[in-house]
Design a protein around this nucleic acid. Structure first.
Lengths: 111, 111
DNA sequence: AGGCAGGTACGATGGGCGTCGTACCTATCA
DNA sequence: TGATAGGTACGACGCCCATCGTACCTGCCT
């Protein structure tokens, strides 16, 4: 690990972990919301309107963080989350875009 | 469901199910092996050198089948498996290619 | 100092998944 | 007809995951 907060290095990215992290509607929704903002935008964890208890939210953000999908840093009493788009695109080219596109398709289907 | 064997229709494809099915090294290996063959090639389930007991193999192929990733049909006393590449590309464009490329990268890393 | 809000750590719980053994079915072949 | 191989169904077991409550920590604000 590059640091003690669970952010993996580029050569530590694991495809199974990434796919597992994305194989959840709510987690994918977080990624989609981050991807909608301009590159590098940071958001608070509590901004995403998700049906999670605080401790559950911590759990899911850790899944996203340890998979390498997001970067988190402490800011004051809160914590900012930013999408690691460049890193993902470098290690797994096209994967994030394909998932985000597929997510839009899948969501509009209202299956 | 289009049929009783668990093959979903195009409008029943679920992104979470697909990603979950692909979030496993061995299952992804099956997809990769099928994708290596010419389009439409069918293979026996037992061909893939996997560390699975027969009943475990049945389970994993069902996961791939119900996610819409493969098509299976009975042939004599056996069962042939074929990749549903066209269907996947239609519903989730670029997703399968991105995952297969990422899988090659990830595998060669020997993490 | 006191209160509050954002987050985390820990423990508990319920459910689903991966794994397998066993029994059973079906087709092929001698 | 009997043997065998490919697969499935079912049940069991262990483990991981998602969820939550509670307690706690840390900044910020009054």
């Amino acid at each position: 690990m590059a640091d003690a907060d669970g952010h993996p290095d580029l050569d530590e990215f694991d495809l199974s972990a990434v796919l597992h992290a994305l194989a959840d509607d709510n987690r994918r929704s977080v990624i989609a919301q981050l991807a909608h903002e301009p590159s590098g935008t940071e958001q608070f964890c509590s901004v995403f309107g998700l049906p999670w208890a605080p401790s559950t939210r911590t759990h899911h953000f850790r899944v996203l963080r340890t998979a390498g999908l997001v970067w988190q840093r402490d800011v004051g009493n809160g914590r900012m989350t930013r999408l690691r788009r460049e890193d993902m695109d470098r290690v797994f080219p096209g994967l994030l875009d394909a998932v985000l596109t597929a997510d839009t398709t899948n969501r509009s289907k209202a299956a």
